[in-house]
Simulated scan of single mutants.
Amino acid sequence: MLAPLVEPGDELTAAERERYSRHILIPEIGMLSQRRLKNARVLVIGAGGLGSPVLLYLAAAGVGTLGIVDHDNVDLSNLQRQIIHGNSDLGRSKLESAAAAIAELNPLVTVHQHDVWLTAANALDLFAQYDLIVDGADTFATRYLVSDAAAMLGKPCVWGSILRFDGQVSVFWNGHGPTYRDLYPEAPPAGSVPSCSEGGVFGMLCGTIGSTMVAEAVKLITGVGRTLLGRVVLFNALEATWREISIVRDPATEAITALIDYDVFCGTSTKDAISVQLLAALLDRRARGEIDFDLVDVREPDEYDIVHIAGALLVPQGIIFSGQARLARDRDIVVHCKAGPRSAVVLDELQRQGYEHVRQVEGGILAWVKEIEPTLSTY
């Protein structure tokens, strides 16, 4: 059993004792652990699928200070799983929406909104302000960044991930046990694992995995129970099965002494990229007959049917990798996907096949809808 992460805060008021009475009645929690929760400072990465239940349950549990890192707005496709937001929040900053929901649930919680993209330049300063990091990010680059920054500062990190029907949860804590790099020493090839926005997610899974993450956070703060440090639990919602694997610190793993460029590490840096604004200008010029090029959509047919850019040619990624695509080698080619990772992989493959004039659209069709054609639907 680990020692409590946080010292007890001030004595509970009468209102706090009533609000948290069902916790206080539990012998393992009691008044002392509730005061630890009151004194705790927890940073949550993302106010999306996992961040939604995490933030609500941490607030309900009485965690005194919550920080939220997010730089996105609420859209309609979020509401299938991101339960902290509602229909009236569409178009609103996720930070503002989440903070309002927390205030409605528990006005005793202090919320700090960090409206930034988490990067190697700001992670250490942000993390230093908190006792514990809860990682609900949906990209490998951010997961490695979160783990490395927490490891450098010696702070515990509760990690969860979801995709379709599968979820995973673990606790990483450098100096006490393994980190994310011990579970995944190398990033998977870019584009080989779809994000939730590309592969989909069973909405209810967010609640199962998110609440499990909160249970781990509360156990770390209060020092009760056995945490998932050194273990990963895996849940399959389709089969309703749980299983567990053990992980240990790899003695060959070098100590993290500096943060790196995680997009380069994960192979997701945007080389040979153009903005959606430039693409719009190029399409206008193509319509006037001033230039010519092929705009290639590398998503799947179902995605294309939901939303696509007028004039784009659908050539799914698998056809390109099989060598069956018949793209002209003497024309400029611009490829795009939903958000960028798949088009980056396709760009590399086309260049490997000898295509010399290939670029990709940074941010994919999500950026196009947001910046150029906001009347289009998204998913």
Rank of each mutant, 00 (worst) to 15 (best):
P156C: 11
A149G: 13
G86S: 11
A98D: 07
Y57K: 06
G62L: 06
L132N: 09
G191Q: 03
L314E: 01
E198D: 14
A98L: 08
I29S: 00
L145W: 04
V214D: 06
L283Q: 15
S88Q: 15
L55D: 07
V369L: 00
V298W: 07
R352Q: 13
A325H: 12
A103N: 11
P189L: 00
E244A: 13
E371W: 11
V74R: 11
R359I: 05
A137C: 12
T241M: 11
E186Y: 12
G91R: 06
R81L: 01
R352H: 10
A255E: 15
R19K: 02
E18K: 12
H114F: 15
W242M: 12
C157W: 11
M31C: 02
C206R: 10
Y184N: 12
T212E: 08
G210I: 10
S88H: 15
A310S: 14
E7K: 14
S377Y: 01
H336I: 04
R352V: 02
A15P: 00
Y20L: 06
A123T: 09
S192E: 09
N78K: 07
K219H: 05
M204W: 02
D263H: 15
N73T: 14
L5F: 12
V224L: 05
D348C: 11
S246A: 14
L37K: 13
S195L: 07
I24E: 02
S246I: 02
G223E: 02
I45W: 04
A141F: 03
V232E: 02
T257G: 12
P53Y: 04
N39K: 05
R285P: 04
T222M: 09
L108T: 07
T208D: 02
L76D: 14
H23E: 06
A15Y: 01
G46W: 08
V42N: 06
A14N: 08
R249T: 15
K338M: 10
L66A: 13
I24D: 00
E362D: 15
L66C: 12
V361M: 00
S275Q: 07
L238W: 14
L105N: 12
A273S: 13
P156Y: 04
R143L: 13
E104H: 14
G48Q: 10
R19D: 00
P178D: 08
V358F: 07
N174H: 15
V134W: 04
Q113K: 15
F265K: 12
T222F: 06
T13M: 03
W242D: 04
A310R: 08
S97M: 07
K155Y: 05
V233F: 06
I333E: 09
P178V: 00
R19I: 01
T13H: 00
P27R: 13
I133W: 01
L2M: 14
